[in-house]
Write a protein that binds this DNA or RNA. Sequence first.
DNA 1: TCCCACTTACTGACAAGTCAGTAAGTTGTG
DNA 2: CACAACTTACTGACTTGTCAGTAAGTGGGA
Lengths: 221, 221
Amino acid sequence: MVSVMDDAVPPAAAPKRRARQPRQATTERRAEILRAAANTFGSKGYKNGSLAEVAEQVGITHAGVLHHFGSKEQLLVEVLEYRDKEDVRDLEGQHIPGGLGLFQHLVRTARMNVDRPGIVQGYSVLTGESVTENHPARGWVTDRFRVLRGEIADAVIAVGEGKVSRETADCAASAIIGVMDGLQVQWLLDEDVDLPTSTQFAIEAILAAALLGDDRPHPLD
Amino acid sequence: MVSVMDDAVPPAAAPKRRARQPRQATTERRAEILRAAANTFGSKGYKNGSLAEVAEQVGITHAGVLHHFGSKEQLLVEVLEYRDKEDVRDLEGQHIPGGLGLFQHLVRTARMNVDRPGIVQGYSVLTGESVTENHPARGWVTDRFRVLRGEIADAVIAVGEGKVSRETADCAASAIIGVMDGLQVQWLLDEDVDLPTSTQFAIEAILAAALLGDDRPHPLD
DNA sequence: TCCCACTTACTGACAAGTCAGTAAGTTGTG
DNA sequence: CACAACTTACTGACTTGTCAGTAAGTGGGA
């Protein structure tokens, strides 16, 4: 429960018995379980998704899953870490875009997401669930939003060539993330919503407004 | 399910035994339970919120709750209907705004929401949860989005005085709803996010882009 | 007016199921 | 042969929902 993960920590200065490394098949097995868990938590949610369902997908029992991960909460944490690592790996070849390239990347992502509703649902469900009391993914989701906001705000400032204030950039950044997430939910519930078109429309709109600064009209004051 | 609400309908030509009206205290009691359920489902989610917790808030047992509502799912459905009725009642004095007034109303709502995080959390949790498989609130959430999109798109067209196409208005409408929902989630997780300011910023930006039509720049193509 | 037939609003006990987690035993592999 | 990777068997905590019973209210009729 203190989440030290005994089996993953090589015993520092092991005295008598060295902790054996896991067999080479084990790493892949754990990855299989993580993918199954991501699938289950994505479609059912963390609370409602059961270890038994995760286990069934890889042909073992729920106790087998617990053998590898110790607890359901630890499994969730590792699913999140695994997904992060995958995202990084996907972006490895391409340099991480900044400036205008970042916004193009966001729109491209929205276009890609149309073909992987499972991923989108997993993200949406977990994000929504994370605002409930004491949810184990809350910290992860919060951090993720914070990092993303920072990167997008920097990109806004870069595109604005110093003419955009930090406050405006922060506003724009949270709005861009918000509109992407919000549109995903609507699209999951109703295919009539045009996810890529609306996403591009909104990002362009927010970016344009940020670049205009205080020169733009404020009809809602 | 067709929402005829038997207990409110006086029996037309009752044959032998008239179906009595509910006692006057009953209506208020049921409303108490509905408010408690909205509270619990809002903070814990529907799946994770228990009848026992709802019951405790009004000082009865979970069986007492089931006496009134028959099943947990029916309780959820009535919570949703109750909230709809409350929303309508709140807007009764003021005429439902259209055109620019609607957008001002949306921004005002965002400002008010800062002082009622419980309501916002309930909405966010339920919306996120609704995209899971076979969720009982899915239809309600989907309909709500559809209606809202229609109203906002109409308002965009009204403000644009006929110069905005239906497709653009739809894009703008879903984007506005998306950004409002998405910002709420971020704000719930991190108070640093400025909900009203970001909301107003984004709505003005999207509205401006919609009114410009194809004349605006498309830096992301 | 008072009483009887009936309904409403519960309670407490329990059924039936699901869940995470544990402990002990088995198998196969390095 | 020791240990990793399981399985089987089980516990205890919680779930929703059912049921019988009870006290309190309500309306109509004598």
